[in-house]
């Protein structure tokens, strides 16, 4: 899958290079972005207590990087790779989320821009195996800890807004799962800070 993403990225970049063959490398690839933030999954859809409360914000550290590829003065395309750091989802189970993303960004002014894009959300759940005795309401029963690594891959529609001050940015990025299927539609979001290293003109 990573290979196919690279294929998509190179296809895009090669096409762009053809269309702007007179541009220099530095004109096309404006900068490198380095990101850090917190990712919250499925707002309002995850019960967090016995009284029906649901998760609105969670601290799940995320890091990532991207590059801005200039299309026009106001539009750019931004391939991005983000990684939500592994979360121990209980005893012997680890969750890992990698986002392979591409955004189209429209620059509203020198200090803000809007983004629309898509992601492949690669969500891996891995267990170490084993078993444990748990309450079953009438005594205890033996239940089993997962022993394999399994991965789900969702395609999301992403919307975001970003404020930029010189080399730094702050972004609110949303990811809409199952856009076309209302009963399964869910929204996750990331709040992130970015540092943009200018590649020069």
């Amino acid at each position: 899958m990573i290979i196919s993403f690279l294929f998509a990225f190179l296809f895009s970049a090669a096409s762009h290079a053809e269309a702007t063959s007179t541009d220099s490398f530095s004109q096309r690839f404006k900068n490198l972005g380095f990101h850090a933030g917190s990712h919250t999954e499925f707002i309002g859809r995850v019960q967090t207590d016995e009284n029906g409360g649901t998760e609105k914000f969670a601290f799940n550290p995320l890091i990532g990087f991207s590059t801005d590829v200039k299309m026009t003065d106001d539009w750019m395309i931004i391939p991005e790779l983000n990684w939500v750091l592994p979360r121990e989802a209980g005893e012997g189970v680890t969750q890992n989320l990698i986002m392979l993303r591409t955004d189209f960004a429209w620059r509203g002014s020198d200090w803000w821009r809007l983004r629309v894009g898509t992601s492949l959300m690669v969500n891996n759940i891995k267990g170490e195996g084993g078993s444990k005795e748990l309450n079953n309401g009438n005594g205890t029963s033996r239940f089993y800890i997962p022993a394999e690594s399994r991965t789900s891959v969702n395609n999301t529609l992403d919307l975001g807004a970003e404020a930029i001050l010189e080399d730094f940015g702050i972004r609110f990025q949303t990811y809409i799962y199952s856009v076309l299927k209302s009963e399964r539609r869910e929204i996750s979001y990331t709040l992130m800070f970015s540092y943009y290293y200018d590649l020069g003109e």
Partner: peptide
């Protein structure tokens, strides 16, 4: 890097998944 966010985990009701 492995930041614990939950104390417990889901289980399966059979050993083979």
């Amino acid at each position: 890097l492995l930041l614990p966010t939950l104390a417990q985990a889901f289980t399966l009701n059979n050993s083979i998944g």
